[in-house]
C-alpha cells in the first residue's frame, strides 16, 4: 500500500540495506526463521551426539584405563580409526558408502541409513565417543593411586571403587578438556550441511545461493556460531566453578 506521507523510515532502511550498505542485512533478518531452524538443527545434532557419545565413552574409557584384555585393544583400534580420519570422510562413508551393499539396502537398517539426519547422528556419535574416550581415559589414569589404595583398604569392591572414587574424581578432572571437545563438536557439526541438512551453515548456504550472494549467509552463520561458542564457554565456566569448588582458594 502506498504511504501518502512519502517513503517511511522502514523504506529508507530497506533501501540503504539493499543498495548502499555492502551487506544486505534486511535480507538476513527476513530469513530469520530459516536461521532459527538452523540453530535448532545444529544444537540438536551436537547435543544428542554429545549425550550418546559421552555415555558410550565412559565404559570404553574405563576399559582402556583398567587395561581390560581384548576390550582394551579393540577400543584402542576404534579410537585410533576415528581420531585419525576426518569427520567429513566418516560421514561420507556412512551416508554415501553403506548403500553400496545390497544387504544394507534390503534390510530394515536402510530406513535409518538413507536418512541424512540419522547418518549424521551416527557419524557424530562415533566421532565424539572416540575423542571423549581418550579424554576420560587420561582423566581416569590421572586419579592418584593413593585414593584407589585407600578405597581398597576400606574393603570397597572394584565396582564401588570405580563409581565412588575413580569416576567422580576423573570426571571433574576431565571438565576443561571436555569443554574443548564440546566446542570442537560444534565446529565439526558444520559438515552436516554437506549432506543436505539445513543446520546454521546450511541456512547460510541456501540464502547465498538463492540470492546469488557472497557474504551475507556465511557472515550470519559465522556470527551465530560465535555466539554459541561464547555461550558454551560461559556455561562451562559456571559448571567448573561448581564442580571445582573444592579447588578454589577459600575466602578468608
Amino acid at each position: 500500500m502506498e504511504d501518502p506521507r512519502g517513503p517511511s523510515l522502514l523504506d529508507a532502511i530497506r533501501d540503504f540495506s539493499g543498495n548502499a550498505s555492502p551487506l544486505d542485512f534486511v535480507l538476513i533478518i527476513q530469513h530469520w526463521e530459516m536461521f532459527a531452524a538452523g540453530v535448532g538443527y545444529t544444537l540438536l545434532l551436537v547435543a544428542v551426539s554429545l549425550v550418546i557419545g559421552g555415555a558410550l565413552s565412559l565404559p570404553l574409557a574405563v576399559a582402556r584405563a583398567y587395561r581390560t584384555p581384548v576390550v582394551n585393544q579393540v577400543v584402542w583400534a576404534y579410537v585410533y580409526l576415528f581420531r585419525g580420519t576426518p569427520l567429513l570422510v566418516q560421514l561420507y562413508i556412512i551416508y554415501y558408502g553403506l548403500g553400496q551393499f545390497e544387504i544394507v539396502r534390503e534390510s530394515f537398517l536402510w530406513l535409518v541409513l538413507r536418512e541424512p539426519l540419522w547418518c549424521t547422528l551416527i557419524a557424530f556419535v562415533l566421532n565424539t565417543a572416540a575423542y571423549t574416550t581418550e579424554i576420560f581415559r587420561g582423566a581416569v589414569e590421572a586419579v592418584p593411586y593413593g585414593e584407589v589404595e585407600a578405597a581398597k583398604a576400606y574393603g570397597m569392591s572394584a565396582r564401588l571403587r570405580t563409581s565412588r572414587i575413580v569416576l567422580p574424581n576423573a570426571l571433574r578432572r576431565a571438565l576443561p578438556a571436555y569443554s574443548n571437545e564440546v566446542i570442537f563438536m560444534l565446529h565439526g557439526s558444520v559438515v552436516a550441511s554437506t549432506v543436505t541438512i539445513v543446520d546454521i551453515l546450511g541456512a547460510g548456504r541456501i540464502l547465498n545461493s538463492k540470492y546469488y550472494l557472497a557474504y551475507e549467509g556465511f557472515l550470519a552463520a559465522a556470527v551465530l556460531y560465535m555466539l554459541l561458542v561464547y555461550a558454551i564457554t560461559r556455561g562451562f565456566k559456571i559448571w567448573e566453578r561448581h564442580w571445582h569448588a573444592h579447588l578454589r582458594p577459600r575466602a578468608a
Partner: peptide, 12 residues
C-alpha cells in the same frame, strides 16, 4: 578463529 568453524571461514 576459535569462535567460527573452519568450513564457514573457508566458504566466506
Amino acid at each position: 578463529i576459535r569462535g567460527v568453524p573452519d568450513l564457514v571461514l573457508m566458504l566466506l
